[in-house]
Design a protein around this nucleic acid. Structure first.
Lengths: 103, 103
DNA sequence: TTGACACGTAGGAATCCTCCTACGTATCGT
DNA sequence: ACGATACGTAGGAGGATTCCTACGTGTCAA
């Protein structure tokens, strides 16, 4: 299914890119300006994000504008659901314990 | 902050381990039985999970029982929040567009 | 048409990751 | 006390990741 969202988000650089794209689509140079690394390296990170479906590319003149694609993040959110149930249970167990203490 | 939850979850093996621990704490041998790889390798994956705070270990006789710790997953969930807002906006924009089409 | 610009890709070095087997340590049963 | 069990760690091989510079392609402006 999800080509590898977790792998794509494992890099701090790529998480920073997705964060930048929250404010709207941006061309590569614009993104690369935020990093200390070379522009081709940023291009490679963009490829990883693209293969995971996290960004899409549109050509506009000679620039390629990247935009954030939310679908894989929604899958991540769904992946988290059982774990959310898990920590809610833990919380309610804790609450019961505290209630007993109060008696 | 979060030592590296994303890095820890980048491995399918480690995601499988966290999934197994949803059903409750388990000793290493029990976890290792679910994988084709050697037990020491599973131990190493457990170390990565432990360093990310995703699991904790308690000694019980000669076994070490690992349990899931929800805190880092909660941080992941919080990390997702701005992106959830992002895709909700996209959806409502789409809805407005469809409403205009209907006129 | 020509030069500058925006970008991707190739190839390679350095580093990290993931697996293995061998081994060391603590605990249990006898 | 002794062998078996449950586990972690050391050391290392093989492959993947991440960065670089050099280069190729398409587009714009003059």
């Amino acid at each position: 299914m999800t080509a590898d969202v977790f792998g794509a988000l494992a890099s701090p650089v790529r998480r920073e890119i997705t964060s930048l794209l929250l404010d709207g689509p941006r061309p590569v140079n614009d993104l690369a300006a935020h990093f200390a690394m070379s522009r081709p390296s940023v291009s490679e990170h963009l490829r990883v994000l693209r293969e995971a479906g996290l960004v899409s590319e549109r050509r506009h003149g000679r620039q390629r504008v990247y935009r954030l694609e939310p679908a894989p993040l929604r899958e991540l959110s769904e992946w988290l659901l059982p774990y959310e149930r898990f920590w809610r249970e833990k919380l309610s167990n804790l609450r019961e314990l505290l209630d007993e203490e109060d008696l």
